[in-house]
Simulated assay, not measured.
Amino acid sequence: MKSPSQIADSESDQHTAEVPYRVHFYENCSQSPASWLVPQATLEIEEIEERGFHDRTHSPPIFTSPCVAAIGKDGKAIAMINYCGETIWNIFCSYVVPKHRRKRIHSALFEALREKGLQQGNIVSINCMTHVNNLAAQAAFEAQGRTKEYIMYTYPLKDRSDAKEPTVGEMRMPEYLVEPFDTGPDGLKGMQAFINEKTAEGYELHQAIERSTYQWVLIFKLEPDRA
């Protein structure tokens, strides 16, 4: 019997003229065939961001959240999208094996995720972030109908290419979280409760951006003692 993390939708087979594959949802990425893509994605992200990590060896992050993956005929994953959240799904890692790019596989995965969110009924938004240098990802996101809503700025005070090994917190928890929030009838009281929840998870409020009367964008930063 398959575990919950191995349950797949057998009717979600997709293919192109060049590569047949199946779209599968997994509850735990680390226990899925897509887990081998995580270190590949990490290395590529580092190169795009030009952070100087190329000569530093360290363990890749461990993603235990859900993912949707494209599985080839040989049973090996060729693409994935990792996501998490309750009413808002945040995509924190997506990757397609280089030789299978430009074949709409990533778009097929996003469309499958979108349909799953619509069927689930309580998902109000699917959000993601990418580096300013990743023009290919930005073009792909806009082609999929995603809307650019905010831009994050950073001011580095230290070069991280110092051969310092990442901590367990860095490997398991992203440094920043960007969470859209609608105060609704509860007003700022509801927002404070949400901020308290994130604080309990190890994040502190970094910035609050008011978009309209009720809609905000909250940016959380991993607390120093969790880094």
Rank of each mutant, 00 (worst) to 15 (best):
K2T: 15
S3M: 14
P4F: 11
S5K: 04
Q6K: 04
Q6M: 10
H15Y: 13
T16E: 05
A17Q: 13
P20I: 04
P20D: 06
Y26K: 01
C29H: 01
Q31R: 14
Q31H: 07
S32D: 01
A34L: 06
L37C: 05
P39Y: 04
T42A: 08
E46K: 00
E47H: 04
I48K: 02
E49C: 03
H54P: 03
H54L: 09
D55T: 11
S59T: 10
P60W: 05
P61Y: 08
T64K: 14
A69Y: 02
G72L: 07
G72M: 08
A77V: 02
C84S: 12
G85D: 05
E86Y: 14
F92W: 07
F92I: 00
S94L: 05
Y95N: 01
Y95D: 00
K99E: 15
I105H: 02
I105N: 01
S107Q: 13
F110D: 00
A112E: 02
R114V: 08
K116H: 10
Q119C: 12
G121V: 04
N122R: 08
S125P: 02
S125Y: 10
N127C: 12
C128H: 07
H131L: 01
A137W: 02
Q138G: 07
A139T: 09
E142K: 12
A143V: 05
G145I: 03
R146Y: 14
T147E: 13
K148W: 07
M152T: 13
D159C: 06
D162E: 09
A163E: 15
E165D: 15
T167F: 11
T167M: 06
V168R: 09
V168Y: 09
E179V: 12
D182S: 14
D186C: 12
G187M: 06
M191V: 04
Q192T: 13
K198C: 11
T199W: 13
G202C: 03
Y203V: 03
E204L: 12
A208D: 11
A208P: 06
Q215F: 08
Q215K: 10
Q215L: 13
